[in-house]
């Protein structure tokens, strides 16, 4: 394909040259028809996953989880337990894969690092930039990011300024993401759109492109603190954005749904979306993550059921 959405690689560079250019670019993206997008997501939701495919997808889903605790009540003990669970999700079955990462507040990063050890394959993600509201000055947000990075975070999950986005100050959102990206240094940047506040799929698409233009390594749906969060059609629209970005630039941007994915069925639907929209490249923890906490136990219960033949129960997985 020579052109995607009529956009060439050089158009992307020009898109952020000025406020007006950025606005023109974002509004030049094709619209999203709500009903059509929801129907497509629902149709993919009817895929029936059976037998070995299901086993493989459950393990893949586990390996994609950013196991998350983002509570005011978080403590070193809680984070430690989370890390143990991330390493060995099913104490009865060492063949269960570890999760991709743990996701914590910035001040909890040292405890996670301590629990996981320096050579762990499990990444430590920290939320930053005045998570979850993002209502702080840029200086404060940058400090928040630097602090988390200094604490040893491998990945930063930032929130965009939804107020600025919704009032049309796209350049401000863009520059903020750029500044955060710079502050991340070697840490990977996930940009949370908080799609529940953006309300429309057109906004979700524009925010996805805005984040990718500004240097996001991942785009992420939600903080988990606002409903609705990672609905299937939102994930669909964002996956279409990373797919199209790749078609233009050849670069892979990761995608992370977070919030509201609680059951194996939900998770498998996400993987079906990945499978059928951007395709096989994204079927990897390097490019697709699922932000979740309770989901892991449901995946483990299903995993046990497939292994043992009968249904398992909540007392056969660990509560942390």
């Amino acid at each position: 394909m020579t052109l995607v959405l009529g956009i060439s690689d050089s158009d992307l560079a020009a898109a952020t040259g000025s406020d007006a250019a950025l606005r023109r670019f974002l509004f030049g993206l094709p619209g999203v028809d709500q009903v059509g997008a929801e129907a497509r997501a629902a149709a993919l939701g009817t895929r029936s996953i059976k037998a070995q495919t299901k086993r493989d997808m459950i393990d893949l889903a586990i390996s994609m989880i950013d196991l998350t605790t983002l509570e005011g009540a978080d403590t070193p003990g809680k984070v430690n337990a989370l890390c143990v669970k991330a390493q060995h999700p099913d104490p009865t079955d060492q063949s269960a894969p570890h999760t991709a990462a743990v996701c914590v507040y910035g001040d909890m990063v040292p405890y996670a690092l301590q629990a996981l050890g320096p050579d762990s394959p499990i990444r430590i993600a920290a939320v930053a930039t005045a998570f979850p509201s993002g209502r702080a000055s840029l200086d404060v947000k940058i400090l928040d990011v630097r602090d988390a990075v200094a604490n040893g975070a491998h990945e930063i999950d930032m929130v965009i300024d939804r107020g600025a986005f919704l009032s049309g100050r796209y350049m401000q959102v863009f520059e903020e993401i750029q500044a955060v990206k710079q502050a991340c240094e070697h840490a990977h940047l996930k940009v949370i759109l908080e799609t529940g506040e953006l309300q429309t799929y057109d906004n979700v698409r524009r925010a996805s492109w805005l984040a990718m233009l500004a240097g996001a390594d991942f785009i992420k749906t939600s903080t988990g603190k606002v409903q609705p969060a990672a609905t299937a059609p939102v994930v669909l629209v964002m996956l279409e954005a990373v797919r199209d970005w790749h078609a233009i630039t050849g670069k892979h941007i990761g995608m992370k749904p977070a919030g509201g994915i609680r059951t194996t069925k939900d998770a498998l639907k996400m993987l079906v979306l990945v499978n059928e929209i951007p395709g096989e490249d994204w079927l990897s923890p390097d490019l697709f993550r699922i932000g979740a906490s309770t989901l892991l136990n449901d995946l483990l219960l299903q995993r046990q059921r497939l292994r043992d033949g009968g249904y398992s129960g909540p007392n056969y997985v660990t509560v942390d």
């Binding site: 029936s48 059976k50 997808m57 499978n275 096989e280 079927l283």
Partner: peptide, 10 residues
């Protein structure tokens, strides 16, 4: 990873 091949679901 290759694209997921769905097992038969008759």
């Amino acid at each position: 990873m290759a694209r997921i091949e769905y097992a038969p679901a008759p």
